[in-house]
Amino acid sequence: MADASPRHPTVSSEAEQLILVDADDRAVGHASKAAAHDGCGQRHRAFSLFIFNGYGELLLQQRSRSKRLWPGYWANSCCSHPHQGESMEQATERRLQQELGMRCPLRYLFKFEYQADYRGLGAEHELCWVYAGTCTQPVRANATEVEAWRFVAPAALDREIARYPEHFTPWLKLEWAQLRRDPALSACLSPPAGG
Score class of each variant (00 low, 15 high):
residue 22 D to R: 08
residue 23 A to Q: 15
residue 24 D to G: 12
residue 24 D to Q: 14
residue 25 D to I: 09
residue 26 R to D: 04
residue 26 R to K: 15
residue 26 R to W: 10
residue 27 A to K: 04
residue 27 A to C: 11
residue 28 V to K: 07
residue 31 A to K: 00
residue 32 S to I: 00
residue 32 S to F: 00
residue 33 K to V: 01
residue 34 A to K: 00
residue 34 A to F: 01
residue 36 A to S: 03
residue 36 A to C: 02
residue 37 H to C: 02
residue 37 H to Y: 03
residue 38 D to W: 01
residue 38 D to M: 06
residue 41 G to P: 03
residue 42 Q to P: 03
residue 42 Q to C: 06
residue 43 R to W: 05
residue 43 R to N: 12
residue 43 R to F: 06
residue 44 H to C: 10
residue 46 A to C: 08
residue 46 A to M: 04
residue 47 F to I: 11
residue 48 S to C: 15
residue 51 I to Q: 11
residue 51 I to V: 15
residue 54 G to K: 08
residue 56 G to M: 13
residue 57 E to T: 14
residue 58 L to V: 13
residue 60 L to T: 10
residue 61 Q to H: 13
residue 61 Q to F: 09
residue 61 Q to M: 14
residue 62 Q to N: 08
residue 65 R to H: 15
residue 66 S to T: 15
residue 67 K to D: 10
residue 67 K to M: 06
residue 69 L to I: 00
residue 70 W to C: 01
residue 71 P to H: 03
residue 74 W to Y: 10
residue 75 A to W: 05
residue 79 C to F: 05
residue 81 H to V: 03
residue 81 H to T: 05
residue 82 P to C: 02
residue 82 P to G: 01
residue 83 H to V: 02
residue 85 G to H: 04
residue 85 G to N: 09
residue 86 E to I: 02
residue 86 E to K: 02
residue 87 S to E: 05
residue 89 E to A: 14
residue 89 E to V: 06
residue 92 T to S: 07
residue 93 E to R: 08
residue 95 R to N: 08
residue 95 R to Y: 09
residue 96 L to W: 05
residue 101 G to V: 04
residue 102 M to I: 04
residue 103 R to S: 07
residue 106 L to C: 06
residue 107 R to G: 04
residue 108 Y to F: 14
residue 110 F to K: 03
residue 111 K to C: 13
residue 112 F to G: 14
residue 113 E to Y: 11
residue 113 E to N: 13
residue 114 Y to I: 04
residue 114 Y to E: 09
residue 114 Y to L: 11
residue 115 Q to F: 07
residue 116 A to Y: 02
residue 118 Y to H: 03
residue 118 Y to F: 11
residue 119 R to Y: 10
residue 119 R to E: 03
residue 121 L to C: 06
residue 121 L to I: 03
residue 123 A to P: 10
residue 126 E to N: 10
residue 127 L to S: 14
residue 128 C to R: 13
residue 129 W to C: 13
residue 130 V to Y: 10
residue 132 A to D: 12
residue 134 T to N: 10
residue 135 C to K: 06
residue 135 C to I: 10
residue 137 Q to G: 12
residue 137 Q to K: 05
residue 140 R to H: 14
residue 142 N to G: 12
residue 144 T to I: 07
residue 144 T to V: 13
residue 146 V to K: 08
residue 150 R to D: 14
residue 150 R to L: 15
residue 151 F to G: 09
residue 153 A to M: 14
residue 154 P to N: 11
residue 154 P to S: 09
